[in-house]
Amino acid sequence: MYCNQPPEKPGNKKELLEKITNMARANSLWVTAYGTGCGSIELRPLGTSRFDMERFGIAMRPTPRQADVLIISGYLATKTLKRVIRVYEQIQDPKYIIALGSCTINGGMYFDSYNTLNVLDKYLPVDVYVMGCMPRPEAIIDGFSLLMQKIKDGRAHGWKHYKENLDYYRENQKKIITDWDLPDYNW
């Protein structure tokens, strides 16, 4: 049940199939409905008729089992990071992370907080950062279109990177989560 080896690279025969699949993946991004910070309030308007994310094929899924994208919406406390790791590792491959706001980029206004981590990239592989404090729904849609372009080009390899460099990520995660009680493999 566990994936103990890095995923194989697609050979030449699979190239075309992979390309078609990437098109499908880019046009059907399902988002885990999980909000970590203040930014999740900016995600709700995306579903309304004004911004309407469904026209890009983006939909909210209530469970990580069925999702593709995890949105880290704003500041991330160490306590939340534990839950986020669990959620992220339960998403089936391929999976992507969009990080919103300056808090995930360098800590933002919580840079000297006792409980908010500064650089998200050390703990989870981020595919697209959307800057702003908080980014408006237009900016989030822009981030989504960036991610779609990345997937179409086959450059959204955050999840592969995570599996290949699991030791690095685990070391960083365990450094700030002092009572580590997750299994070493969650997928």
Binding site: N106, G107, F111, D112, S113, N118, V119, K175, I176
Partner: peptide, 10 residues
């Protein structure tokens, strides 16, 4: 504390 635990930040 933040510098020590969450790492250096510009």
């Amino acid at each position: 504390y933040a510098m020590r635990v969450f790492g250096e930040r510009q």
